[in-house]
Write a protein that binds this DNA or RNA. Structure first.
Lengths: 183, 183, 183, 183
DNA sequence: TATGAATGAGTCTTCATTCAT
DNA sequence: AATGAATGAAGACTCATTCAT
């Protein structure tokens, strides 16, 4: 019976997200395979994390595709992105933090491409007059990551209901805290 | 020559913030002492992280005091808090993520107390009609942490200028992305 | 297509001769078969080495037969032996070194028989007054092995021409280094 | 109590000489230290073997110095070399066989220097008319190694008396097997 | 007090070997 | 019969921690 690579990555993500020092043994056990088999599929710990990155990048890219970032107004696109990316948020947060930054390789190029797409969305919103222009698109991109990560964590810790998550992030990001007249 | 406990904590924070798995050896070397000496001052790795937490908590608490959260309107207090807490942001982000949650001890009580003060601030803003009420104060607290962490990281990575940091966080948090009429 | 047992042994000998820790995987690959198949043909690593020994012993025995050790004078017989054994020299050197001495089994009996034949040759030379008697036949046997191994290695390393090999060994062994009057 | 590096190397040589796959654990135990300590002193298995090489080279070089290869006739110098090098013979044989040939580094340069000194000795003997010239000095060098290795092994296996060893090697090498008139 | 040295406990990794197709 | 996949066992290695000076 072939090992389900997807499953291994999923379990690894789940565990590593909670504790960055999770051992290969624990990951293998969680995936229902032996340590040796885990090593057969991922040459080593680094390789596994690398694969996790590639997987996360791919998933995130797919989420962006699904969100059709270029269609409609930027705010709507952003909402769709947040919703589509929700399932990946936790892994992204982990990779973001742990990322040993193997400088100058393909994986980093992957990250850069994702960043660029999101930054482009914020730029479009600014160009179309929907988003304020005194906050740089680069910062907004980082802020989005930060809020998604915080949100995933807050849900995990039981401080925010899963059903409220996307709404909470999108509303905060788009409208801020202030109660405004016209709302 | 007495070991500078402050310095050790500072170096440890700097390193651990960047890589959660930094070894005791690296920390010791960064602090300019031997591993053995590090152990003499902090009973063990856990103890070191614990001390880091206590230190972070204390610093953060002091930042809150300095920000006089109860004075003036909530928005102003929030701005002051962000500014005052800036130097601690990175450590907080680390502790926030890594915190192994030594359930039910004094350190956690410390965190809870900090959380409570911030949450109270958001509640006050909501009660006074300044902050919207459809986003829970708990979530806003988490979001603040997330944005401070993302901001510290963005500065570290060179994507946001240090001088813009506080403004970037406060504006985003308070006003959101949307360009509104009255602004 | 049936696996060519001969080929496997040949490749194994070639690899193991160069590095005693060559893995089963490397051997299998060199032989153009899978690890599993290698195991189907040789019950395990030990079994493979055992087979290699048996094969080497058989080859060496055949070489002795071909050299007609009992015919003519001992020196001539020795020359013929060196020449006939040349192709096996490298494997013999490996087995000689690596031989884990599975005490008291048939393979060792095989070695003993070979040793005995060679030793007998040296004894004959001594008895017939051709070889000096102050060097034990047992030592001469070991020395022959040593020189054959060194020779195979020297050829492999390009320090001795293959065509000179047998002559170099035989001359050294028979005549030594010294330039003597009567030569 | 400081670990005796010499002792570790000595034990490692003794064990590895007998079985090339001796584990780090066994070596550590034989040296009376823990595995971790062994690793503290030799970064890894490779490093240990490397150190063994350097040590062997140094010892062999010292043996050459002690043998005063340039003094007296070449035959006498060779005898002195064999005697002086006897204690290192086994290690040399191991290194010779196992040598992973870390191409182009200092260790290999060390080997080359040793080879050169010995080869020079044989050349001198040839130039002075003591050694025959139809056997290349390079081959004689290899042959010397081969005989020293075979001798060490023969002693270890109980086939040659330790006290006869040097004589056996020197006589064979210098005079060959043949009984000559004048002897 | 400070530290070089030593180590126990655990993790990663590899290998020979078996299993299921 | 042949093999890709899986694994137990064993070895290499690292790290936090302790010890002796």
């Amino acid at each position: 019976m072939a090992v389900d690579r997807e499953r291994v990555l999923k379990e690894a993500a789940a565990l590593l997200t909670r504790r960055a020092t999770t051992s290969m043994d624990e990951i293998a056990r969680a995936a229902g395979i032996s340590r040796a088999t885990l090593h057969r599929h991922f040459a080593g710990r680094d390789a596994l994390i690398r694969a996790l990155e590639e997987h996360g990048i791919a998933q995130f890219a797919r989420a962006m595709d699904a969100a059709r970032l270029d269609e409609g107004d930027a705010a709507g696109a952003l909402r769709r992105l947040i919703e589509a990316a929700e399932p990946v948020a936790a892994v992204l947060a982990f990779l973001f933090t742990e990322n040993q930054l193997f400088e100058g390789d393909e994986v980093n190029a992957g990250w850069a491409r994702l960043d660029a797409r999101i930054t482009a969305l914020f730029r479009r919103g600014q160009a179309e007059g929907d988003f304020r222009i005194d906050l740089s698109a680069a910062w907004l991109t980082e802020a989005l990551y930060g809020l998604m990560g915080a949100g995933a964590w807050a849900v995990h810790e039981g401080r925010v209901a899963r059903n409220d998550l996307n709404h909470s992030i999108a509303e905060l990001l788009l409208g801020g805290i202030r109660r405004s007249m016209e709302k």
